[in-house]
Simulated scan of single mutants.
Amino acid sequence: MVNIGSGLGAQIGISAESTYGTFVASSKFIEFTKESLALKKTTAQSMGIAAGRLLPLSARRVLTRKEVQGSLEMEIANKGMGLILQQLMGTTVTPVQQAATTAYLQTHTLASVAGKSLTIQKGVPLTTGTVTDKTLVGCKITSGEFACGVGEMLTGSFEIDGKDSDEGQTLAVASYSNMSPFHFGQMALKTGTFGTEAALDGIRKVSVKIERPQDVERFYANQAALKKEPIENDQVKITGTLESDYVATTLDDLHTSDGATSLVWEFIGPIIASTYAETFRITLPAIRLDEGPPVVDGFGVIKPTFNFTGLYDGTNQPKIEYLSTDVTL
């Protein structure tokens, strides 16, 4: 293969770590659209006075802290998303075969993310075509946002905090299976009583953001300027938006009453086997609408955008279901 000296030659590989911050060679390769993952360093410069010295001395600058920060953006595809979903949601998932078919269901229920981290290996091309290695260890997802609107693909954007960057690893050879993105033509949105939600008309765009707050400032002595694994330090925050045409008062009434409803946002793709189709589904057992009552701002169709917060209904946890041909994450 001829390497290309631009973003066309870039790659991202990921793998689950057994121990936070310990390198594991890439097992999955993500088709991404944009990334900003990079080493962030903190330095201190001595300001000691020395007779006649007009410039700070290079030898008296020290590196006091290192970490990794950034984001990873991608289209959500019909294969290969399991590791990312597991890191966001927390549950350790084993895909379950559906009957005797090639379809396997992953159910990512909201749980603690303690002990969950990734090694992310970036391949960044020089203009010569040589691809340089940037291996990021101890990567934890601190938030994930999914979005899809009219004429769009389903996308995911993930904020990531990491422990360190290593440029001495061997760059893995990327390999990709034939993947297809989920898209608006496959999208459905349902609301109502949990377990019996019904299709909601007029929805043009949906976004759901899941935030996993963590203490990412665990820098201690004896750690060689590196952090220890972040610890969850706040409740999960789930928010989202529903952009719509004003075809019914269902959402408007919920906003007025501040009532709760279960929300199911799903994408149903081609049949894998039997009755099992490629699926990406987010279920939020209880949401409440914060803003967005309809207003008239011209001659056009009324298009309210409702903002919502996801909450716990006391029984059922939010979950992401992913039905694919992936036998493992």
Rank of each mutant, 00 (worst) to 15 (best):
G195T: 08
A111Y: 03
S244R: 01
E321M: 11
D164L: 11
C148L: 06
T132G: 03
K34L: 02
G129Y: 04
E266W: 06
F32D: 00
I120K: 06
E31A: 05
Y20V: 08
N233H: 05
A188L: 10
G129I: 02
K66I: 09
K228W: 07
K227F: 09
G298E: 03
L251H: 03
T94H: 03
H255R: 01
S117W: 04
K205W: 06
E159M: 14
V124E: 14
A198Q: 12
D166M: 11
I320K: 05
T107L: 07
V124K: 11
A38Y: 05
T132D: 13
N233D: 15
T22N: 13
T315L: 14
R212S: 10
S27L: 09
V208D: 04
L118V: 03
N222C: 01
Q235E: 14
L200C: 02
P304V: 00
G9T: 05
A100M: 13
F29Q: 00
I271M: 11
Y246M: 07
S6G: 12
P293M: 00
T241H: 09
A188Y: 08
G156W: 01
D234K: 15
L37A: 06
E31L: 10
G82A: 06
C139I: 06
S26F: 02
G168C: 06
A100K: 14
M81A: 07
I4M: 08
T256V: 02
A50V: 14
L289D: 03
K28A: 10
G80Q: 00
S157V: 12
A51P: 02
T43L: 10
L226D: 00
T250R: 07
L251Y: 05
T305Q: 10
F280N: 02
V2N: 07
F182N: 03
L323S: 03
S165N: 12
Q98G: 03
F299C: 01
P285K: 13
